[in-house]
Amino acid sequence: MRSIITQNLSRVYKSPVEKTGLARSAKGLFRKEFKYINAVTDMSFCAEHGDKIGILGLNGAGKSTLIKMLCGIIAPTSGSVVVGGYTPFQKKNDFLRLVSLVAGNKSQLNPDLSAWDNFRFLKSIYRVPERQFSETARKLTLLLECANLIDKQIRRLSFGERIKMEIVAALIHRPKFLFLDEPTIGLDVRSQESIRKILSDYCAEGDAVLFVTSHNLSDIVDLCNRILVIDGGTLRYDGGLAAFCAHYNTTSEINIEVENCTPRIREIVAGTGIVDCDFTGNMIRIQVEKTFITTVFRELIQKLSNDINKIQIIEPRTEDLLKELLIKGKVK
């Protein structure tokens, strides 16, 4: 069964053009001008239970807008979206019981209550059975190492501590569709890791569909088995993370450390079938097409065997690869 289907999903924002300067602002009082922003354009994709999808894109690419349409906060301008058999924007209660959203910059917790009271409040709202509630809450807070903070008023928690509580709160009713918009923004490495652990455990347990947007590419690499790459509101890539890397990761790097970088060595290096190279002191970094890597490697060892101190092949980390692809806009 397909649990999420979108077809030609688009969202246009209409927003007033802000005028600068007194005279122009005053004029704007009488005649408002609007501009239209195509935040999401013509997106079609499907997702099934067990999918863990990372949404990648630069600022303003339309990631949050897509998530807001998927969980029903805003309506699409055109196209359709079906989640778990429901149209999200109708906000049927049965649908809402299936979804949860965590947004790093928004809070669903009452700042005047303790985390525990907040959880109990949500338990009553979602009518979660007592057993399931205490099990979930206890387990999650232990894993997130925040069990000792549970009686503290939310407004007294640090940002990172609060986000952890937000995540626990979002999982209390065991949603089938979990949406996370920049969940680890502003967290330290250790907290990021525990949050990722919780989320991947949660997905492994049930068969929830997970959507994550994050600037922290390690989140995506750790959590997701599939990515959507968005650029300027359009979907550029939809598929497995591994396939994505295989497709775009066409070069590898060979690092050589030599005794002394003589012109002869430079000549030999330039003569092998390389894409690009960079000499710094006695370090040489060579970019080679993946398909030729063995040939080039063998050739270098043969010709430079007396000069080489150390030679190694470096596979780019997935994060770096993703970053480079996003920034250089290579994804077409």
């Binding site: 807001k68 906060i73 906000k91 049965d94 809402l96 947004a103 928004k106 809070s107 709202i125 979602y126």
Partner: peptide
């Protein structure tokens, strides 16, 4: 935009 999360309650 804080309304977002409040709109997702099944009430």
């Amino acid at each position: 935009g804080q309304l977002d999360l409040l709109l997702l309650k099944p009430v």
